[in-house]
Amino acid sequence: MTPPPDKANRLPQADREVLCYAASVGHSVWFSRDLCESWQRAPTPTGGIYNESRCWSLATHPARPDEVWSGTDQGIYVWRQSQGRWNYMPSSMVGLHILKLAIAPSDPDFIVAGTRPAEIFVSRDGGRSWQCGELPIGSECWFINTPRVTSIQFDPKEPETLWVTVEIAGIFRSRDGGHSWELLVEGLRDPDVHNLVIMDDLGDRLILCSTEVGLHRSADNGASWEFQEVPAAGDLVYFRCMARRADQSGVIFMSIGDKPSGVTGVLLRSRDFGASWEQVELPGRVNTTIWWIFVNPQDPRLILCNSIFGEIFRSTDGGETWQQMDRFLGEIRDIAWQAFPKNGPCRS
C-alpha cells in the first residue's frame, strides 16, 4: 500500500536509524540494522515467535515505530523494540494463514488481516479484539483449491473504505470499515488478482490491478476493468506486486514473473502513473517472481523488494538504481523497513 506522502514522518538520514524486516517461511522474521547488509533474528530466550515459524506478512505504522506486526501460521505477533521481544496477540485467526496485514495510515489502531482460507478480520482497538467481515466468497476455487487474500489497501480518500484482492476470486471493496463487501470483477480477464495501486493525482481516480494474466486498469473506481498491454513485460505474464513510490511523482513499480514461484522475474517501472512501462535493471538474475515491493513515505528514496527464494534488492535513490544484497534468507514473503529517531525511545 502507498499511503499519502507524509513529510511530517520523514527524518533526515543523519538523525534516524532504520530497521529492516523480512518475513520468512521457515525462519520467522529477520531484522537488519544496516539496510539489509546483514540480518539477525530475535534471540530465542525472549520467546514469542518460534524461530522456525512460517511468517507471511508484516505491517508497520509511522506513529508507532516501536512496533512491527507479523502474520504467521500461529496467529499474530507484535515485536516491540523497547521490549526486545515478540508479543502474541490473541485472535480467532489461529489456525489460519495470516497472509496480509495492513494498518490504516489515519489510525494505528485500525488493523486489517487477510487470511487463507480467504477471510478479512478487522480490529479497531489496536489488535485487542477482531471481527470477521462478511466477504462474499466461496470456500473453494480452481487451481489452488482454497482462496486466499493477496493484498489489502486502505482507500487514499475514504478512511472507512478498504480494497482487497483475493486469488482466485477477484477484487473486493468495503465501504463500512470491512464489515460488508462487494465483488468488482467486471471486465477482468481473470479473477486471479494480486495487487492494486489507487491514484487520485490526475483528477479522476485511476486504479491499476495486477493479475495472473496481465495488468488491468479502472477509471470508474473499480466498477469496470480494462486490460492494458504492457510490452515491456516481454514473454512474462504473471503480474504480481505493485507499489507506487511514496511521493507524488507518478512513479510505480510492478513485478512480473513466469509463474509462482517461478524461476525468473523482472521489475518494471512507470514514470507516468502506469500508462507506459520500462524494465528496471536489476543486478544478477532474479530467481523467482519478485514477490513484494516495499515503499515508505518516511523516505521515498529507500525501496526494498524480494524474490520468494530469498533475494533482496535495495534502492536508495527512489528506484533508479538497485543493489542485490549478499545475504539470501531462504523463502521470503514480505519485506519492510521503518525509521525512528537516533537515541529515541525505540533504541535497544
Binding site: 480467532s92 489456525g95 489460519l96 482460507p117 477471510e119 477482531w130 471481527q131 470477521c132 467481515g133 462478511e134 470456500s139 473453494e140 483449491n145 482454497t146 464489515h179
Partner: peptide, 22 residues
C-alpha cells in the same frame, strides 16, 4: 461478526485422478 470455527482440511475424491484439497 466474531467467529468461531474449526478448520477442516479434506482430501476430496471426485474421481481417481481428481482430488481437491480445500
Amino acid at each position: 461478526m466474531s467467529i468461531a470455527f474449526r478448520l477442516y482440511q479434506p482430501h476430496v475424491y471426485h474421481g481417481e485422478d481428481d482430488v481437491a484439497t480445500p
